[in-house]
C-alpha cells in the first residue's frame, strides 16, 4: 500500500499505509492522525481537512478542483499548496506523499 506522511504543526510525523482509491483524508482518519476534523465526512463542504502539500509533491498531487477552490478560499490561512485532503485520491503515484497539517482547522 502507498505510504503517506502527515506532519503536524509541531513537527510530529505520522507515516501511514493508505488504501488506493480512498481519499487522503480517509487515510488520516483510519490511522487516527490528529489535526484533521473532516466535519462533513468527505463532501468538500466544510474545509476542515485542510493540508499543505510538500513542495516536492505539488506537481504530482495537482491543484484543487473548482468546488474545493471555493471552500479553500474561505480560509484566511490558505497557502499556494493548500488542498482539501478529502478531494485527493490515494494512488500508487502518490506513494511517499508528504503533507503538512495546519496549526488549526477552520
Amino acid at each position: 500500500m502507498p505510504k503517506i506522511t502527515f506532519i503536524e504543526h509541531d513537527g510530529t510525523q505520522h507515516i501511514v499505509d493508505a488504501e488506493v482509491g480512498k481519499s487522503v483524508m480517509q487515510a488520516a482518519m483510519d490511522n487516527l492522525v490528529p489535526g484533521i476534523d473532516a466535519d462533513c465526512g468527505g463532501e468538500c463542504s466544510c474545509a476542515t481537512c485542510h493540508v499543505m502539500v510538500n513542495s516536492d509533491w505539488v506537481a504530482k498531487a495537482g491543484g484543487p478542483n473548482e468546488a474545493e477552490d471555493s471552500m479553500l478560499d474561505l480560509n484566511p490561512e490558505r497557502a499556494s499548496n493548500s488542498r482539501l485532503s478529502c478531494q485527493m485520491t490515494v494512488s500508487d503515484d502518490l506513494d511517499g506523499l508528504i503533507v503538512d497539517l495546519p496549526e488549526f482547522q477552520f
Partner: peptide, 10 residues
Amino acid sequence: KTVQGSVAPA
C-alpha cells in the same frame, strides 16, 4: 473574506 479573519483560529 473581508471579515472572516476576525474569527479565524489564529
